[in-house]
Computed example of a mutant assay.
Amino acid sequence: MSELVKTLVLKPDISKPRWDQSTFEGRLSHFLTTTNPLNLLTGESQLNDFKHIVDNYKKGIVDDNLTVNGLWKAKHMTESAFHPSTGEKMLVIGRMSAQVPMNMAITGGMLTFYKTPAAVIFWQWLNQSFNAVVNYTNRSGNAGSTTQLLTSYCAATGGALTAALGLNSLVKSAPPLVGRLVPFVAVCVANSINIPLMRRQELTDGISLFDAEGNEVGKSKEVARSAIMQVVVSRIGMAAPTFVCIPVAMNSIVKTEWYKKRPHMAGPIQVLLAGLILLVSTPVGCAIFPQTTPVNVSSLEPALAEKIRSRPNAPQVVYCNKGL
């Protein structure tokens, strides 16, 4: 939309995503923008200009030449580069827009070098180190986040290495395709350890619930378990197409005469395939479940449901931010 923002009677509400997040299509549009690797090409000065536009808009200051599309682009670019709580510029490799280029390189490495213990240790360690950087970059800012990060990093790395090395020893006599799928199992194990550990405080204290106006109305352990499980499923969903489709494709490619003459192309082929698949699977995985999840009060723990019902104008539905 090329309309000037100043000419509009009803101006855009940039406190919410541009697209309807109650539909999969809306969530996919949102995450296609958030995870776009081209965001990384935006220079520092331009990022600062985008942030300046957003900060001014929130104060009611609108440039005469600012269009609706320009405003939304400024919002998307600001959110892709600056931490939502601290306002600080995030580490480049920890941004959501870096997920595709970083993961395509790491995934290609894990799928290419999976036969020797040394290679497995290096690539699984690198993968979990990258995950740790992403978790740190997108941390909530709580005092315990660094401790949680270190604990989950060590546990996830240990779990991934145990799964990968253990399974490699078991599938030595299995068909080649089975061996190629071992890295995927290791990633699933790591995600199943990493995410609950990073968010263990929510499991013990409960995840915050809010009414439609954004007021906190309580915390639920049951909802926390469901939210964290959804995040685990989403992360595995992002990884599954690359770790499953590429081994199946490579199992056929290695039998071709073209490949037999060029065995050194294994790595580049798998990195390229990973990049193409991740361009789709990353936003799709993020969009599987709504980030702001509605929860019926009647489905909450009895004591919490009663507490919410006792409030003035008690809501029938509350919301939680499940995370990514």
Rank of each mutant, 00 (worst) to 15 (best):
T256N: 07
L10N: 07
Y259C: 10
R95F: 01
L66A: 06
K261A: 13
V92Q: 02
A143I: 05
S299I: 07
L170Q: 11
N135W: 03
K11G: 10
P101N: 04
V317W: 04
L276M: 12
L126R: 02
T137S: 15
V254A: 11
V178E: 06
S310K: 04
L47C: 08
A190Q: 07
S97V: 02
Y153W: 15
K221G: 13
S97R: 01
S97K: 02
N168L: 11
A174P: 00
T293G: 05
G166D: 09
K58R: 04
G158Q: 08
V231M: 10
V134Y: 04
N131F: 03
D64R: 06
H83T: 03
S15K: 06
T67S: 08
A132R: 05
L111I: 06
S85N: 03
K322A: 13
M102K: 01
F50S: 14
V317R: 06
V231W: 09
T146G: 07
I253T: 11
S310C: 00
T204R: 05
S298W: 04
Q148V: 00
Q124V: 14
P183V: 04
A119E: 12
F210V: 11
L41C: 11
Q128H: 09
K172D: 13
F243L: 11
N313L: 09
A74E: 00
P247T: 10
F113H: 12
M198F: 07
Q21M: 07
E216K: 14
P17N: 08
C188L: 10
W72G: 00
L66H: 02
V54Y: 00
S129A: 13
S45I: 03
P17G: 07
V171K: 10
S298I: 08
S2M: 12
E301T: 06
T67W: 01
P263Y: 05
P12M: 06
G87W: 00
K16L: 08
L203N: 02
H30F: 12
S22Q: 13
K6W: 02
S29M: 06
Q99V: 06
K16D: 05
V54D: 03
M104W: 08
G108R: 05
S169N: 07
V297D: 03
K261G: 10
V280S: 14
M96P: 00
A212T: 14
K58D: 02
R18M: 10
R225S: 15
